[in-house]
């Protein structure tokens, strides 16, 4: 058996996980600074220069706190649920291509961990598994607020998972592949539109799908204005009301890592990933992902929260039909071969 690609993959995955964790830590700092900026405040600026050490201080605080298990909790499930959430969060990033193959020490190294032919579906599968951490945590807490949070999360994730998946079908039709590497290659071509040379990003050929994906992704990651499972002002943090210390921090980590992973996937699927002017590379991916992350924070600082029934109505009555229409139109275009897409 050839061990080398396996080891390289594992090494790359390890590096990726650490980068994600670091990015997550600074995402919390960035979010607090940005929200403070939106709200005419200063934000954390005491720990280190510009408050840059704040994430570390937070981590130390959370880890050193007592881990409380409520008396009427379902003990085993309660202890496992946050780990589940945390473990599943970074898995989606494994299929993101971070660049073309490079040569390190005379060996060809692919800048992705795995390239399976169902990568996009794999991302959806991992996302749909991620909800278990929330459901089980909410159920096991033995708290009615948590239970309500879990119930909301169940319905929300199933509905928006559908929209998320269907919004991608247009891309699958255009590329004829579910592999992110293939999708990226298609986008690296040039789109000539009336004499204008544009990058062949799916943002341009699938704008509706992009909007749908964006909305569904916000809902999928439980972020404002779709943060119903953890609505502080209604459910008092919902499913993780009863969690404390490092188990609480696992949920926190999972939420932010999910945001980053979804941003990376969105950048790869719709904005051409590493493709960009001048020199292609992972920095373009980072810039694009940052745009999405900024958008997340902007939403949170601006919008009120949806109500549960409105949330479901939006998914089933607006987004889902739009996604289906998008699929139909894309299919017809592909069938009749309009344009050279």
């Amino acid at each position: 058996m050839d061990w080398e690609p396996l080891i390289v993959s594992y090494l790359f995955g390890f590096v990726l996980l650490n980068v994600l964790l670091l990015a997550m830590a600074y995402m919390t700092w960035l979010e607090r600074r940005l929200v403070a900026f939106f709200q005419d405040r200063i934000g954390p600026n005491r720990t280190g220069p510009f408050g840059l050490l704040q994430p570390i201080a937070d981590a130390v605080k959370l880890i050193s706190k007592e881990d409380i298990v409520p008396a009427n909790a379902d003990r085993l499930v309660f202890l496992v649920a946050p780990l589940l959430s945390f473990v599943l969060a970074p898995l989606g990033a494994l299929v993101v291509p971070f660049g073309d193959a490079v040569t390190v020490f005379g060996r060809q190294v692919n800048l992705y961990v795995i390239d399976i032919n169902v990568a996009a579906l794999y991302f959806l599968a991992v996302g749909s598994m991620g909800v278990y951490g929330i459901i089980l945590g909410g159920y096991a807490s033995g708290n009615r607020y948590s239970l309500l949070g879990a119930l909301r999360s169940t319905a929300q994730v199933i509905s928006y998972e559908l929209v998320l998946g269907l919004s991608l079908v247009g891309i699958f039709i255009l590329t004829g592949s579910l592999s992110l590497v293939d999708i990226l290659r298609v986008q690296q071509r040039t789109l000539v539109l009336g004499g204008l040379e544009l990058p062949n990003w799916f943002l341009l050929s699938q704008p509706l799908a992009f909007v749908l994906f964006l909305i569904a992704a916000v809902a999928e990651t439980n972020r404002a204005p779709f943060d119903l499972p953890e609505a502080e002002t209604e459910l008092i943090a919902g499913y993780f009301t009863e969690y404390s210390g490092f188990r609480f921090s696992f949920y926190f980590l999972a939420e932010y890592i999910n945001m980053i992973v979804v941003s990376l996937i969105a950048a790869t699927l719709f904005l051409g990933g590493i493709d960009g002017p001048f020199v292609d590379g992972v920095w373009w991916l980072a810039v694009k992902a940052f745009i999405f992350l900024f958008f997340y924070v902007w939403l949170r600082a601006t919008l009120p929260r949806f109500r549960y029934d409105q949330l479901m109505g939006l998914a089933w009555k607006v987004l889902l039909p739009l996604a289906l229409i998008n699929i139909g139109v894309t299919g017809l275009v592909r069938l009749w071969g309009i344009g050279a897409l």
Binding site: A125, M129, V131, T154, I158, E161, G165
Partner: peptide
Amino acid sequence: VIVYTGAIIVL
């Protein structure tokens, strides 16, 4: 994973 674990068992 998507259909059974992600949707049916969730329900």
